[in-house]
């Protein structure tokens, strides 16, 4: 209780905002999010705050999400796999002013769920799935993306 009060007292409103923006989800919710039909292109990017190449490629995702109404970007944080505290993710979102949707996956035993997300995925990050929300057609890439790569991948599933 004391801890709760202290947290409530010291928490800056922006960190609370980051907390609202980043929902902690189980595999089932993540799969529902990935498989949900929409008229848009869905970009699902797997990352973590400790992953340097992930952080490097983030601006391209943020840019395309902000510029194109037909593209929905979701960053799926895998931080909890190694560190049980989501605060590190909230702080990152706040510091980098991340605008895209963020989900924080809360699952143990990665071997049991990696294939359920994507069979071609080794588990290394960064990794990205690009989905045509209407047809369900998808592309998977397991590497750091650079300028223009997202546009090219999108054109391949249209």
């Amino acid at each position: 209780m004391k801890k709760l009060l202290l947290t409530a007292f010291f928490a800056i409103p922006s960190l609370l905002f980051a907390q609202q923006q980043a929902e902690i989800v189980k595999l089932k919710q993540l799969q529902e999010h990935i498989n949900r039909k929409t008229d848009n292109i869905k970009i699902i990017n797997f990352w973590a705050t400790w992953c340097a190449p992930c952080i490097k490629e983030m601006p391209y995702f943020e840019k395309i999400g902000a510029e194109r109404k037909d593209v929905d970007v979701t960053f799926v944080s895998l931080d909890l796999d190694l560190n049980p505290k989501p605060e590190v993710v909230y702080r990152f979102i706040e510091r980098k002013k991340i605008q895209s949707k963020v989900l924080i996956l809360d699952e143990k035993d990665p071997n049991s769920w990696i294939n359920q997300i994507e069979k071609g995925w080794s588990g290394a990050i960064p990794a990205t799935i690009i989905i045509n929300g209407k047809t369900g057609q998808r592309k998977f890439v397991e590497k750091e993306l650079h300028e223009g790569d997202l546009e090219k991948l999108i054109s391949e599933i249209l």
Partner: peptide, 28 residues
């Protein structure tokens, strides 16, 4: 996983799960 695999080999048995996946840093 690794210990179970080695123990299986030491006992001339089949490795119970011979391929697993994990989250990790991509090779640079």
């Amino acid at each position: 996983y690794v210990e179970e695999a080695i123990n299986a080999l030491l006992n001339a048995q089949d490795v119970p799960s011979n391929k697993t996946k994990a989250i990790g840093c991509t090779i640079k």
